[in-house]
């Protein structure tokens, strides 16, 4: 009885359908463009998030109640709603008012979709990166600021010369992890027709009637990018911690 049920699950599916990659010769170039699209999209988004995130983190650490809660509200909203919803609201909402130039980047990235996508992803990412920065700054021993101020350095000088160099070191692994998260999360951009990895896989599936293989390739690619990267980060992190012990 169990085996009958078990076999019924695979009626229309042969094991080979998972590994039907016959579309590759024809669509290889599209897949590579998809990978490049995903990488550019996620890297640009995280880099664009760094500056606003730094601003948000500084505001979050401010003594002023109002400034602190503005930043807090931003972070709360963007971390507590799905990225997909934010993407929709920004693309169909905000960018229905803002004209976007229509041209191709590298010959296959459509700017009129790419720009709103990057804006949405980096607005979202800046909320997460802000918390990373905040934790990084707070992780620097309080005595460091006191020592710097006791020497007569201003708050800004102490921040720039003493606190931030140490905080950045704390933060780099977490920032790299955010990059990995973004590589995976950026797949939601397929709903806007941005031809990154997932959209490419869907397109191939649609036009070849090979329904599983393209998504398997997508999964492989995401894994091949993110897993080794996360291992490298882990390694760097471990080595940094070893150098750190006082």
């Amino acid at each position: 009885m169990f085996w009958e049920w078990w076999q019924s699950l695979f009626v229309d599916m042969t094991a080979s359908s998972f590994f039907n990659f016959s579309f590759l010769p024809k669509y290889g170039e599209a897949v590579i463009q998809g990978v490049v699209y995903t990488l550019i999209l996620s890297v640009v988004s995280v880099l664009m998030a760094v500056l606003p995130a730094f601003l948000l983190a500084t505001m979050r650490l401010s003594k002023n109640n109002i400034i602190r809660s503005i930043s807090g509200a931003y972070i709360a909203v963007f971390r507590s709603t799905p990225l997909l919803v934010q993407l929709m609201l920004i693309y169909y909402g905000v960018f229905s008012w803002i004209p976007v130039p229509n041209f191709l980047i590298l010959g296959f990235i459509d700017a009129s979709r790419f720009i709103p996508g990057v804006v949405a992803l980096s607005l979202n990412s800046s909320a997460y990166v802000a918390e990373i920065f905040r934790a990084g700054i707070l992780a620097v021993d309080h005595g460091q600021m006191e020592a710097a101020r006791s020497l007569g350095l201003s708050q800004g000088q102490a921040m720039k010369l003493v606190i931030l160099p140490q905080a950045i070191k704390n933060v780099l692994p977490a920032l790299a992890n955010e990059m990995i998260t973004m590589i995976k999360e950026s797949s939601v951009c397929m709903v806007l027709g941005m031809s990154e990895i997932m959209f490419t896989a869907q397109t191939i599936a649609g036009s070849t009637m090979i329904s599983i293989g393209p998504y398997m390739i997508a999964a492989f690619i995401y894994f091949l990018i993110t897993y080794p990267t996360s291992k490298v980060i882990e390694n760097v992190e471990r080595r940094m911690r070893r150098g750190d012990k006082n």
């Binding site: 021993d141 005595g143 460091q144 006191e146 020592a147 006791s150 007569g152 003493v162």
Partner: peptide
């Protein structure tokens, strides 16, 4: 503060 040196229990070297 420049004219008031301070030494801390936990050194606080950079």
């Amino acid at each position: 503060r420049q004219k008031m040196g301070m030494v801390f229990q936990h050194f606080n070297l950079f």
